[in-house]
């Protein structure tokens, strides 16, 4: 158990290190001259030299990487060229919007996916199952930006149920804030629901085939009771890990959704960084987002081990 945690932490750290290296190499090395890339070809030589100096480009690459990495560890991500502000500050400013979007969309997607996934497993090969699987396929095939566009046209512009654009901070009222991100969250939720239903359905199907389900029939329990207590309990743990993996997808979707609904989140910031070729800012966002994904995955993997009594006490599956 402890062994596993140490191993998992170590492999997580290796992945983090690798990500930082790749990000550094891709953004600082491949472009040739990042300063030139940021300023464009019409930059004056003085300005270029100044930016090179401030970006530390005159040092050898490994020293640049070392400085960047140590800076990163103390929260110093450098200065955004476009905004002229500290990247870390920019991230912190934009974070609430994206976190609210991610949390709300999960809060919408998970319960719905559990209900649909469980029902489609219980009524396998019946109409509920067919509908669930169609929803799944359609959810997978529908581009989120398109869905966002269509929802905007219908629910915001057409019916006027939601604001067309913009974010209301929590300080101006919880429900007003919720209202401003509800529609984008629903769009994000629809994007996640396919994979979620898939994993919950298959986990539930395998639980229903387990021998403890035979015992519930021997004991004469109703279907409701045997599913409610025994089948669900056996099905609920495996999907935990996939929910963490969804995070990468949500953050990716947030880029598109934020851009369409004009929400000032990380995704918009990222798009600006790419459009303006603000490499320092881009680097900060990439490291932050992927780092979050890695850490969350690591934590859920460890939690999974702790929550699951078969692993906690058994050390191995029987």
């Amino acid at each position: 158990m402890l062994n596993f945690i140490v191993k998992r932490l170590f492999s997580g750290l290796v992945v983090l290190f690798f990500i930082s290296l790749v990000t550094f190499i891709v953004l600082m090395w491949i472009p040739g001259d990042p300063a030139l890339l940021s300023l464009g070809t019409d930059a004056t030589p003085e300005k270029l030299a100044e930016l090179r100096e401030s970006m530390g480009l005159n040092l050898p690459w490994y020293e640049q990487y070392y400085q960047w990495l140590t800076g990163f560890l103390v929260g110093n991500l450098g200065n955004s060229y476009v905004f002229g502000e500290d990247v870390f500050t920019l991230l912190v400013q934009r974070l609430p919007v994206t976190i609210s979007l991610a949390v709300l969309s999960m809060a919408i997607a998970i319960p719905i996916a559990i209900v649909i996934g469980v029902l489609s497993a219980i009524y396998k090969e019946q109409w509920i199952d067919y509908i669930a699987r169609s929803v799944m396929q359609l959810g997978d095939a529908m581009p989120q930006f398109w869905l966002a566009l269509v929802f905007l046209v219908f629910f915001s512009a057409g019916l006027g149920w939601f604001p067309v654009a913009g974010f209301t901070p929590v300080e101006e009222g919880f429900f007003a804030s919720l209202h401003s991100i509800l529609l984008p969250s629903i769009v994000l939720a629809i994007g996640q629901i396919g994979p979620l239903i898939r994993i919950i359905r298959s986990s539930m199907l395998s639980s229903l085939e387990q021998d403890y389900m035979l015992m519930t029939s021997v004991n004469g329990f109703t279907k409701f009771r045997s599913i409610g207590k025994y089948a669900l309990r056996g099905a609920i743990i495996a999907p935990l890990t996939i929910i963490a993996m969804q995070l990468a997808g949500i953050l990716g979707g947030a880029v598109l959704v934020e851009s369409i609904f004009a929400l000032p989140g990380l995704g918009r910031l990222l798009l600006m960084a790419v459009e303006q070729r603000d490499l320092i800012l881009l680097q900060g966002i990439v490291i932050f987002v992927t780092g979050t994904v890695v850490v969350v995955n690591m934590v859920t993997d460890i939690l999974y081990q702790i929550v699951n009594p078969m692993i906690r006490f058994g050390g191995s599956h029987e």
Partner: peptide, 25 residues
């Protein structure tokens, strides 16, 4: 009635090889 009759009147002892006891409970 069937469930009640069998559930209360008959005890079933399964093979020991597999998870007849729910592993998570």
């Amino acid at each position: 009635e069937k469930r009640r009759l069998i559930g209360s009147g008959i005890g079933f002892v399964p093979q020991n090889t597999v998870a007849f006891l729910h592993p998570m409970i």
